[in-house]
């Protein structure tokens, strides 16, 4: 199987991660061809998950499609890169029903568009108008500081870590003092 993939798709990036888990990196344009090949010839019939990683420095998203065989013994990860600006990928929702909700989730969290998927409404957020929250340019801390009210700290406002250290040192000093007194006796 690996040789066939290597030859047909002109890639060397096939990895055996575990004896039941394989991974291949491939160009986006050949992605669906490979998926169909795995499904039709090697029994990888189930789409488990579509995950996304944000490579902001390189300017792309890495989409990983996880396929599993019908007997649930082997898993194949197919990774592909798509452009980060106006990210777009073809929908799989007509071939795999479960892809519909996975794509909806990716659309909500990363802002990836899936033309052809008929329901890309918000899934777990509600009336979200800011940057999709899992994109890395979304600064969570800054957002929280600007939008929400924090409770002020305790009145004494001590740094608990420093305070613990100080107390411990004090205790130690006291102990050695006590011991000295004892020895003196």
């Amino acid at each position: 199987m690996f040789n066939e993939i290597k030859q047909r798709f002109a890639t060397d990036d096939v990895e055996v991660k575990r004896n039941d888990l394989y991974k291949v990196r491939i160009k986006y344009s050949r992605l669906f061809e490979l998926m169909h090949m795995l499904r039709d010839e090697y029994d990888y019939k189930t789409l488990n998950a579509i995950t996304c990683t944000d490579w902001i420095e390189e300017g792309h998203f890495a989409l990983t499609y996880m396929l599993t065989t019908e007997d649930r013994k082997y898993t194949f990860m197919i990774q592909t890169m798509i452009n980060r600006e106006d990210a777009q990928a073809k929908t799989l929702s007509h071939e795999y029903k479960q892809a519909q909700i996975m794509e909806r989730d990716l659309h909500e969290m990363y802002g990836i568009d899936f033309p052809g998927n008929e329901n890309l409404k918000e899934l777990s957020l509600e009336s979200w108008v800011h940057t999709p929250p899992l994109r890395r340019e979304f600064d969570t801390l800054e957002f929280v500081t600007n939008h929400l009210i924090f409770r002020e700290g305790r009145e004494d406002n001590v740094d608990t870590k420093a305070e613990t250290k100080r107390l411990r040192a004090e205790k130690k000093a006291q102990k050695s003092k006590d011991e000295e007194v004892k020895d003196g006796k």
Partner: peptide, 19 residues
């Protein structure tokens, strides 16, 4: 509910219920 707890920097939860 008091001060956000371990979700103190989460973008999607409130920090201080009494507000």
């Amino acid at each position: 509910t008091v001060n956000g707890g371990m979700y103190w920097d989460s973008y999607n939860t409130i920090k201080k219920l009494e507000d």
